[in-house]
Design a protein around this nucleic acid. Structure first.
Ligand SMILES: [Mn+2]
Ligand SMILES: [Mn+2]
Ligand SMILES: [Zn+2]
Ligand SMILES: [Zn+2]
Lengths: 172, 172
DNA sequence: AGAATATTGCAAACTGTTTGCAATGACATC
DNA sequence: GATGTCATTGCAAACAGTTTGCAATATTCT
């Protein structure tokens, strides 16, 4: 869908998916409209946070977002509250990677969602390009379950880290 | 909050899966052997905890297990430490339902795993009887990802709660 | 029984997150 | 552009779940 900024070196081979990037403008504009439509105010902290969020290429914690925007000194509590608001409005979605930290990511305007692979060696988080559990959700729906949603993440060792550890083993 | 007992006719209809139950004896024996094989000691707190765990039919938090065994007064810290140990040894597995609480469940001796449905109305947690994402894991493996594992949960409204809310709507 | 070592309890620290409240800021109306 | 209203913010403090340090205790081995 999107071409990679880097020439196709070895670096970006074997990726689960290349997509974790947002064009800043449409994302920010969408968020601004959602806020306005909800009757919420457009404030300096909120704008700064929205802008900062577009610079992340992976899910970020509240603390990380706070640091990313630290220049425009606002309080950490404001970041917590803003993210809660953004989440309620569907501007961001929660990502739970199973360490005790809540993360978020800007939701893509098209409403699609994706899951992640987390490397347990280098901690890198990669998006996966498709969600394949509609089938299971449909089966649950037929059993009477409703308003279904799900959370799914994969863990393991990424190709890079695997390669490195093999190289290490060879030299040792 | 408390769940009312219902006529057994409807009770087990429309279930995602009926299985969240362990026979106490084999589970405890298995755990005991694993502990011994690992060179760890068989202590009164550990035994009490193992025994208490078999009485849960859904994933339990540290605090819940603590309360369940409170008679044999042991410290909450001991419960934390024991569960960490049990988890390392594969006696229990971590279940993360996305509220900030770590839960565990006794692992079935056959090594199989399952995922859960969490009702956002009554908080009930039901096991699902099959894991259907081997396919996606295999695809990742072919891309060079290794030592794969995953976490998956479903959320929504269970058939019971859905039925209740419909009844409510009718009477209103 | 005695030595070696793993485990426990207790208190205190820690991390991520939430809450209360008074001061400030946004925005609609005049 | 001033004014009133209400949402939003900052600051301090509370909070929940979990982890750590350490001395006392319990288990296992010989
Ligand atoms: Mn993502
Ligand atoms: Mn289960
Ligand atoms: Zn890696
Ligand atoms: Zn329910």
């Amino acid at each position: 869908m999107k071409k990679n900024p880097k020439p196709s070196s070895k670096r970006n081979e074997n990726r689960a998916c290349a997509e974790h990037h947002h064009d800043p403008k449409p994302s920010i504009e969408r968020a601004a409209r959602i806020l306005k439509d909800a009757g919420l105010k457009s404030t300096k902290p909120r704008s700064a946070l929205l802008e900062a969020m577009t610079r992340f290429h992976a899910p970020f914690s509240t603390e990380e977002l706070f640091r990313a925007v630290k220049a425009s000194d606002l309080d950490l509590v404001t970041v917590y509250r803003s993210l809660a608001t953004f989440s309620d409005l569907g501007i961001v979605s929660r990502v739970d990677l199973g360490d005790g930290v809540v993360r978020y990511e800007l939701r893509s305007p098209d409403g699609s969602h994706h899951h992640h692979f987390v490397c347990q060696e280098c901690q890198k988080v990669e998006p996966l390009d498709s969600c394949e559990i509609k089938a299971q959700e449909n089966r649950l729906r037929e059993l009477g379950y409703s308003q279904l949603s799900h959370r799914l993440e994969f863990f393991g060792i990424c190709p890079d880290c695997r390669e490195h550890s093999r190289a290490d083993a060879r030299t040792r």
